[in-house]
Design a protein around this nucleic acid. Structure first.
Lengths: 205, 205, 205, 205
DNA sequence: GATGAATGAGTATTCATTCAT
DNA sequence: TATGAATGAATACTCATTCAT
């Protein structure tokens, strides 16, 4: 029904507003009132769309996650040498995060929430799944690279995938605290070095 | 004299108790009462040692930071090839973090706190300084490696240092969400691959 | 419409309840809980109507002031000889204060609050304005009396107005501490004596 | 013993320090710590000299009262016409209050304290006695003036005394809120006018 | 469906007072 | 005698949540 459509799109709009609020003031620093006011609706109405404050926050997280997933997915286009595919993919993710840096704090809040007894489970599992998925995605490609003879066979693809995911996450974190860091450049340098080491081809002397 | 010693050591003890509390329930989820009770003192006494809840939290953070700094510093021992020095250092940091994983949430809380408007400055600056220091430490060694002829001259040491710091941080984060990950193994694999690429020596076929 | 009316009248009712509380126990001796309980509402609701404890107190003061202003204003009726106008006016104010003596402590609290560093400005200014207004009112009448030939020309009307306002205030204060004092009688005697001196007519020997 | 002398003078010194504190921040706004710190002693020591915070405050009040009593007493010198005696006395009191205006808030605090249920009795009685004494002092002189033929016989001396005391108190209050008022001038004008009316002598045309 | 008034539990913080040293 | 660490009761204020209109 149109009703449903309206409802869903309004909910989606609310999520975006809430995301901005949470990003600015954190989970505990944001009141339901704040969100309602920012969205121009009444406090009571907010509860028509979300059961809970935590529910609202979780919705924000899901939305955030989806956006990221889209970026990652887009680069799946399997063209050219695997190494270049990975490079393109990693750079795309990094660039997307840099562009949306304003919402990055939502992430930090999710991590913190995931660590808190009581809230732990829900967010913790989601993050775990998120990272596991991304690691798998990369590991699969690395293995494909091995099969294609582009990447050394003895490389432990799972470990490397984890390290790669970590490097991106860790660079973003540093970038958040110090925006003078050039994430893209760092990522590129890093991948080049890595692949010069990984690659079966002789590194250019 | 003794007074001072007593006071300081009591304060230190309180910091450790508070660290455990914050790690378990987060900043906002931990009340001053909780900490006081956990420490077996009265709420009022807590305020004799810390001006503020934030002050207490910051003390916890400083303590956490110092512990890490010690671990990093210990490995400064400049023996053997630079590459091995770096390997030892990075592995030591990773291993220390893994061992103290129970307190890791404090870190997550600091990040989140640093992102919140209002609290930002203090924690943000501290984190920025922390990362900048660690990056510099690594970059310096990488450059020493270049001078020693162990590491390729064309490598951008600053970018690499950032990526390395990021990789460790990012791996820890994944480990926090999924303790089935083998951080040490991942770090080791990662460094090996990296240096096989970085190293001027021919990677072992 | 009705909403607004309701809200305003409820606020007004709360002010009266709070006035009684403050009068009984003073500003610091009255908790927001006390007021809420006395009004039969919850603490939280109190904050829907007043931003602050100080805000509530200020509202009480304003209400108190207005009541007084009304009494003073009523007597403006410019009939008969000026001296009698002033007598009527002063006696009306005194009588009104005596009748509302139960709320007089609110005044004492305002004075004290005005003297406290930090709260000073708001209350201090209000009191200053209140007295200045009343002095001016009296001075104007005294001058009118001079023009009408009822009052000696050489009298310093401003000084006298201040003294008159002071006398009323000071008598009330004494009355508060010792209700055996007959304020009305004292005021009347005082004015008679004063005007027998002020008046251009020969005092009855 | 010297001990005792020391003790008393130290106590007296503490009272003066406390007076300044109370005058600045009010009764509730002043903590025992504040006073102790301002006096350069420890909180605990304060309790060696005063049983209570209220006790300390009462001591301050007593000290304040004594100072005033001295000023009033000094002028008792029964020389010259009674009217001039009264003028001198009243002006002396006013001038003394103006000079010590910085401590005036202590007075305001006492009044407020006297109005609060719980503290009432002690301060209320003291204030009542203070005013009663001063009224009596003035009334006695006025009556002496009547006997001496200086003052009209039909004047109600008690009422006039109350009004006079009130006028001084009330002028001080206005002065506190608005120091542009010239208390001395106002008092002088006021007394002149009053006695021109009171005096049996023909007022100077 | 939307509102916003009402709630009341929860929290940081202060401070008079005590007492062991 | 003087200290200052320790206490715990008290209080202003916030906010998620509910529900009558």
């Amino acid at each position: 029904m149109i009703r449903t459509v309206d409802r869903d799109s309004k909910r989606a709009a609310l999520v975006e507003v809430a995301a901005a609020c949470f990003a600015k003031s954190g989970y505990d620093g944001t009141s339901m009132s704040d969100v309602a006011m920012a969205a121009g609706i009444s406090k009571g109405s907010l509860y028509d769309y979300f059961a809970d404050k935590e529910d609202l926050f979780y919705a924000v997280f899901e939305w955030f996650e989806q956006q990221l997933a889209q970026v990652i997915a887009i680069q799946t286009a399997p063209e050219g040498p695997i190494i270049q595919q990975i490079e393109r993919s990693v750079e795309a993710v990094a660039s997307s995060l840099v562009q949306n840096i304003a919402l990055y704090p939502v992430y930090l809040e999710v991590w913190a929430a995931a660590a808190r007894t009581g809230t732990r489970a829900r967010f913790s599992q989601a993050m775990q799944a998120l990272y596991a998925g991304y690691r798998q995605e990369l590991a699969t490609r690395l293995r494909a690279g091995q099969e294609a003879g582009e990447i050394k066979l003895e490389a432990d693809t799972d470990s490397l995938a984890a390290a790669l995911v970590g490097a991106i996450e860790g660079l973003m974190l540093q970038y958040w605290f110090d925006q003078s860091i050039d994430v893209q450049q760092s990522v590129r340098t890093f991948l080049r070095v890595l692949f010069d080491g990984l690659s079966t081809k002789q590194a250019p002397s």
